[in-house]
Every structure is written in structure tokens, then in C-alpha cells.
């Protein structure tokens, strides 16, 4: 009977297993295998080099720069994105006028195609005709060259990324806040807790699962950043300043056609994301109060 149950369960899981195995697990494992070779995608001969590609990575300054850029991107986007999203969600959880309009406005960038968004931000950042320089000009700030400036290019991409993903995080937080039972607030009120104390001791701890979730997916997402960079700086920067890890992978794989080397980069990205997920789970796991 038990055995039979398992069989049925696996049968139901089969479609997902096939898709995940076919499109995720097998390609991932195959790319580890390819990372042991030098291969240009079309040669019949693959030259076996063992771990030489990983050795080359360790001393490749461009790789380290791309890792640095990725960490910089994560630090620049995640805390700011989360705090901003939380504040907005908190505001939207109150009964204010035009609530639905605000919710729509914040969510609109999420569902807009990144290509269309990229075109608009290219125009916003245009050094002569851009609206950003015009706006800053009103406050007497001199015009910047944004995407053409190695110092500002990556922050410019970060700004667009925060704006683009804000609405998604807002929705997660909003659901988290709204799902807190009224009784807790009533109890707090009876105990004589005031505005900030309620927020600090009721709202915040109970939204922690949402914060954990958003942090995790933001972190994974930031290590997978590619499209934003590619749309705004198709060449990965001025002076490689926007070359993040996945862009570096892309450049090696599909511009230089060093498939083995690119696969080695992809393995490193895999390890980083895997480690971060485990660490985060361990750290946060003990600190979250799940509503039963």
C-alpha cells in the first residue's frame, strides 16, 4: 500500500521532473563537464584541459573585476530596494485615497518589457538630451555622462534595476503586512502600545518571512543580473565597469566562443549562489517567527 502511494506520487511528479531534469539539471551537469575542455562550440574536437580553466579564472583580473562589480551591484540594489519597497508597502497597507492607482503605478515597471524599459532609461541617461541631466540642472548640478562614465555607469544600471523590481517586492511585503491578524494589533492597543511600538513589535517581526524571501530572491537575482546591463551598456561598460559575472559569462561564451571557459564561470556562479542560499537559510532560519 505504502509502496503504491509512492508510485502514484512519483507519477504525478514526473512531468515536473522531466522538465526540471531536461532544462535545468542535465544542462547544469553538462556545463560542468564542458568546463574541463577548450571548445569553440562548433569544432568536432574538444581539447581536454582538466581544471586548467579554473586555474586561469583564479588569475584572470577581468573575472575578479566582474565578481567585484556583481557584489557592488548586490550591495547597491538589495538593501536600498528592500527598505524602499517596505516603506511603500507599509504606506499602501493603510487606507489612503487612490490606493489602487498607486499599487498599479508601482507594479507597472515589473510587467513592462525590459527592452522597452531599457530604451526609455537610455534616453533618461542621455548626456545632452536626457531628462535626468535636465532635472539635476534645475538644482545647479552639472551634467554627467552617466552610462559613458566608468564611475556612474554601474550605479545608473542599479538605479534602473531598483526601480524595475520595486513593485514586485512591494507586493510581497504588502501581502505579508495585510495577512497579519487584526487580533495582534488589538492586543497591542489594549496593552497601550503606540504607533512606533506597534510597528516595531508587531508588524516587523511578523513580516520577517517576507523580508527573508525578498532578500533571498534579490540576492540570487543580483548574481544573475544580465539583461539590465546588456540593455543599457551592450559592451559591458565603459572600461568594463558594468561587466557583472553573467555578462562576463555571456561575453566569453557568445562573443569569444570560449565555451569551456564560460562554463567554468557558470560553475563559479552556481557555487556562489548555492553557498549564499545555504548561509542565509542558516542565519535567518533561527530568527524568523512563522505565523502558525
Amino acid at each position: 500500500m505504502k509502496k503504491n502511494d509512492n508510485f502514484t506520487a512519483y507519477l504525478f511528479l514526473l512531468p515536473s521532473i522531466i522538465v526540471i531534469a531536461g532544462f535545468h539539471i542535465i544542462p547544469t551537469v553538462y556545463s560542468w563537464y564542458i568546463s574541463m575542455f577548450n571548445w569553440d562550440l562548433i569544432s568536432k574536437h574538444k581539447e581536454f584541459v582538466g581544471f586548467a580553466n579554473y586555474g586561469k579564472l583564479a588569475v584572470d583580473l577581468d573575472f575578479w573585476k566582474s565578481l567585484f562589480n556583481t557584489v557592488y551591484f548586490a550591495l547597491g540594489t538589495i538593501p536600498a530596494g528592500i527598505i524602499l519597497a517596505f516603506l511603500i508597502a507599509y504606506g499602501l497597507s493603510k487606507k489612503i485615497k487612490g490606493l489602487n492607482i498607486f499599487r498599479t503605478i508601482y507594479f507597472l515597471p515589473v510587467v513592462t518589457s525590459i527592452n522597452a524599459v531599457g530604451m526609455i532609461w537610455l534616453w533618461i541617461y542621455h548626456p545632452d538630451a536626457g531628462i535626468l541631466n535636465w532635472l539635476l540642472g534645475l538644482f545647479g548640478v552639472s551634467a554627467q555622462r552617466w552610462l559613458l562614465d566608468p564611475v556612474f555607469a554601474l550605479p545608473a544600471v542599479m538605479l534602473m534595476s531598483i526601480w524595475k523590481s520595486l513593485g514586485y517586492n512591494v507586493i510581497i511585503f504588502l501581502v505579508g503586512i495585510l495577512s497579519i491578524p487584526r487580533e495582534y494589533y488589538e492586543a497591542a492597543e489594549i496593552d497601550g502600545a503606540s504607533g512606533f511600538a506597534v510597528f516595531r513589535n508587531v508588524t516587523l517581526p511578523l513580516v520577517m518571512p517576507s523580508v527573508f524571501f525578498v532578500t533571498l530572491i534579490s540576492l540570487i537575482g543580483s548574481f544573475q543580473t544580465f539583461t539590465q546591463v546588456y540593455m543599457l551598456t551592450p559592451e559591458g561598460g565603459p572600461l568594463k565597469s558594468t561587466t557583472v559575472l553573467v555578462y562576463y559569462l555571456y561575453k566569453n561564451a557568445f562573443v569569444f566562443f570560449k565555451i569551456g571557459y564560460a562554463s567554468a564561470v557558470s560553475f563559479v556562479i552556481f557555487v556562489i549562489i548555492f553557498a549564499l542560499t545555504l548561509l542565509q537559510n542558516k542565519y535567518w532560519g533561527e530568527r524568523i517567527h512563522y505565523e502558525n
Binding site: 545632452d128 559613458l148 551592450p234
Partner: peptide, 16 residues
Amino acid sequence: AEYSKDYLDNDFASGR
């Protein structure tokens, strides 16, 4: 002279 990473068509058309 000014340089860009992008196509110059719009800058040319707008007279810049």
C-alpha cells in the same frame, strides 16, 4: 566631436 555607444541617428536628426 562627441562620441556615443549607441547609434547616432537621433542625435544627428535633432541637430546635435
